[in-house]
């Protein structure tokens, strides 16, 4: 990022009173890329909000099937939550390592993130398989349809994130910390942290609120 003389001047005058800055020119590619990805993430969150709205409306429509409190296991959800939180942290460590071009810590952070993501996916998949085996699949009731689509959509995002994570490790391995690879890494970190934010909504609304007897 180029620091021009006007920047120092603007800092001296934080409310921009009487500061006339010439046209600043196009933003750097790093900012444009990340900003575009940020807008995508927000649109993704808007899409999730539709699933949340559907779940909120349909959570009582159990069609004499099981209620949320009968099928949710708080212990598994707690483990999943801790896994995703820790993976968000290690993903942050990996992005710091990428910024300072430290390969060892980058690979280590990404590998731990990948393992935690896979543990999360395994627990979620076993939960789904168990429900389907007991006859509580998505076709059982409107409540289960909305539950499977909301939680499953988040799970699909995590799966895509794990695949992206592996390609990022491969890219750093093959190309090193080039500017374009670092841009992709920044987008990946944003994606992974955003997934964690959505999971906060999922475990609060679906499992804790919906699991109340």
């Amino acid at each position: 990022m180029s620091m021009t003389a006007t920047v120092g001047h603007a800092h001296a005058d934080p409310h921009h009173i009487g500061v006339v800055i010439e046209h600043p020119g196009p933003a750097s590619k790093r900012i444009v890329t990340a900003y575009g990805f940020w807008v995508f993430l927000l649109s993704d969150i808007v899409m999730f909000s539709c699933f949340f709205a559907a779940y909120a409306v349909l959570s009582g429509q159990t069609a004499d099937g099981p209620k949320g409190s009968e099928i949710f296991e708080q212990r598994n959800v707690a483990i999943e939550t801790v896994c995703l939180l820790l993976s968000s942290f290690t993903c942050g460590m990996a992005s710091i390592a990428a910024d300072v071009r430290n390969r060892l810590w980058f690979y280590l952070g990404m590998a731990v993130t990948c393992v935690l993501g896979l543990i999360f996916l395994t627990i979620e998949f076993r939960e789904f398989a168990d429900l389907v085996a007991r006859g509580y699949g998505p076709s059982r009731s409107a409540f289960l349809t909305s539950f499977f689509s909301l939680v499953g959509c988040h799970g699909l995002h995590v799966s895509a994130g794990v695949l992206w994570l592996l390609t990022m490790m491969a890219q750093v391995f093959a190309k090193g910390f080039r500017a374009d690879v670092l841009r992709r890494m920044m987008c990946f970190a944003l994606f992974w942290h955003a997934l964690d934010i959505i999971w906060v909504g999922v475990f609060s609304v679906v499992y804790l609120l919906g699991g109340a007897p």
Binding site: M1, S2, M3, T4, T6, V7, A10, H11, H16, V20, I21, E22, H23, P24, G25, A27, R30, I31, T33, A34, Y35, F37, W38, S95, M186, A189, L190, H193
Partner: peptide
Amino acid sequence: DQTHIPAGHDLAPGE
């Protein structure tokens, strides 16, 4: 209205 933003001093999200 980019004139309100200090030149070259935007931060990308996540940065």
